[in-house]
Design a protein around this nucleic acid. Structure first.
Lengths: 128, 128, 128, 128
DNA sequence: GTGGTCTAGACCACA
DNA sequence: GTGGTCTAGACCACG
């Protein structure tokens, strides 16, 4: 099973699904054109409600990462090589990154170490 | 005024406060030993509920960034140079960073560019 | 009552609500800062489900026209004078306008007459 | 190929076909008397279901833009110069135009700019 | 008391 | 058989 959820986790279930799919796209486990499970199927597999899956898919569509097809179900629409993010998207991302990096630094992680971890994660994504 | 809030923003108000204080610690605007405003004071200044400020402070306490004293109020307990984060804290941070980096990569931002942005933010924190 | 719905109309109910609110903003009946009814209130008034209202509000939020407040409920966030639409938004609008104008022209409406109708509607919005 | 479809686009396929044919009539690419491809032919060319093409043609018939003959297939029935639309048709169109214009105005597009865009599109249809 | 989330189950549009 | 829409009712997070 590609996706799992923690019903009692801090993040809402649809958010957990969204995050896992984003990571799967980054790692190449899912590539543009790949089909995601149908809402009903995934809901049944995970023991959650169809609408919850639907919401996760809808958010991903709003982010431009998946297309919701009429016949095909949900399909990955964008991937690592597929053109750059727009300005607003990038600005929003940077704002969130800034907060996350501030937390690391404020809690005592050394900047070179932080950067190294980021590099390692990105290297993993690129497959190096 | 050091802190501001958007009452109708996407993030809850207590989260906005928490984030801003974290960034303030990272940039050195707030240093270990500095006192934060009292909950009543800050709530009055921002026009928000006292409980909301309290929640923000409590979260920061749970993260180990502030100490809450009966008479001393909230005081910054940790800063950039103050020893490393523990393993659990670090692992949790890395999980969140992984998701954020995956989003950037999946949406087409180039890894060197992403790293550069991270480096720039960290440089800003260290004062270069 | 400001808003009404036709449960059996061609457009989904949430779309009808969205459209009416957009028109209300254009005509000035609703101005930035004005509060919309709460989801439960509006649902009760119209005899529809809370989630349907929620969806309409969520779409308007995605369009940037309303903010969904924690305490305040839904509030108009943008109005006629409030800065221009971004490029993508404009391009999408123009694509839809092109189709609508093509329909008018193909069905025999004379271009000057079409323009005149558009001008009249816009004049109504500006209050002239 | 005159017509194309995005199977996973926001609009249903039959709607995409309908829109493209309407635009083709407006631009003069298709003129009254011209034959459209047979449903089988077009469905095969586009890799879609025959029923979908059928539905698009039927909508156009309901709008009075094409005539469906048993042997003649689908033929364009109306064009830019072919008499005015009836009152009901016009009223419906104006209602939709009003919503679309309201959206533009509410989102900050200036009325003169909106009118100018409309004029440009109509000029393109008339061939200037 | 507000919106947010989740569940459950139904019907419809689309293909 | 897919996603889209709507209804109904419950609990939670936020303030």
């Amino acid at each position: 099973m590609l996706l799992t959820v923690e019903p009692d986790g801090d993040d809402p279930i649809y958010q957990q699904l969204r995050d896992q799919i984003v990571v799967a796209v980054a790692t190449g486990v899912l590539a543009p054109g790949d089909a995601l499970p149908t809402t009903r199927q995934l809901a049944a597999d995970l023991g959650i409600n169809m609408h919850t899956v639907n919401k996760a898919y809808d958010r991903l569509r709003a982010e431009g990462l998946v297309r919701l097809g009429r016949r095909t179900g949900a399909v990955i629409a964008r991937g690592p090589g597929d053109g750059a993010a727009d300005a607003e998207e990038t600005a929003d991302w940077e704002r969130r990154a800034r907060t996350l990096l501030a937390e690391a630094f404020a809690k005592g992680m050394a900047p070179p170490e932080v950067l190294e971890r980021c590099r390692a994660v990105l290297d993993e994504f690129t497959g190096r």
